[in-house]
Amino acid sequence: MAKMVRRRFFSLGGKLLAGGIVAGTIGKYFPDTVAHAAPTVRTGKTEGKWGFVVDTYKCIGCGRCVKACKAESQVPVDQEVYRTWVERYTVDYDKNVKIESPRGGINGFPEVENRERITKSFFVPKLCNQCENAPCTKVCPVGATYTTPDGVVLVDRERCVGCSYCIQACPYGARFKHPVFKVADKCTWCYHRISKGMTTACVQACPVGARVFGEIGVPDSPVDKILSEERVNILKPEAGTMPLVDYLGLDKVVV
């Protein structure tokens, strides 16, 4: 009898083990499946160590961040490729929305023609969202782009074949083909800086503190403070990408 029970137990154990392996494999290939299986809604960051907040109330559209980014990350200044860029939204009396980002905003913005008709206007800086459920890393055929253990999405310049599938998969237009290295490129949150305890080049260059970067879950972290006290939003929440960049004052017209 005992033997029988034991055998039954082992066979159950075997089934559980097999099930676990199958579930684990499925989970590995479809991470979002597992993440969404839990009925609780997660709003906090679990995987990432870092956080980034953009304060659209503060941005003055000077373009310093775009310039700093291109210099720091060796992205050709004269080409239409950007790791970060700034958009200006203007809404007029007739509720017409105009969006513009001339040369990514690197040289600032011109004055609008019909200033007196504008009812609402603001700047929105954009950069890679380092999504927790990143569509770009998911589609890379060769495993050349990936999320680091501390939550930053990087591109391996030695493995990338340059198929551009990740560029297609990013809903935010944050990726591009690097004109010099001929591989996919994107914002790394200045991984070479933040891993040395510095802040990102764009944050450092911003004269008004419209960009805030820091660790999460650390006492007195400015990012943590904003995330726990302020009402923030993310870009394209319907895409289910779970971005790590949060926005203060994000208007519904922002794309």
Binding site: G143, D156, Y191, H192, S195, A201
Partner: peptide, 29 residues
């Protein structure tokens, strides 16, 4: 297949170290 491929995920984990060694342009502050 590179040696460090697959150690921490489906990628070459040495690449993380390579990115931390990227050249600086802006100082710390």
């Amino acid at each position: 297949i590179p040696k460090s491929f697959g150690k921490t995920g489906h990628y070459r984990s040495d690449n993380i170290q390579e990115w931390t060694e990227h050249e600086l342009q802006y100082a710390a502050g």
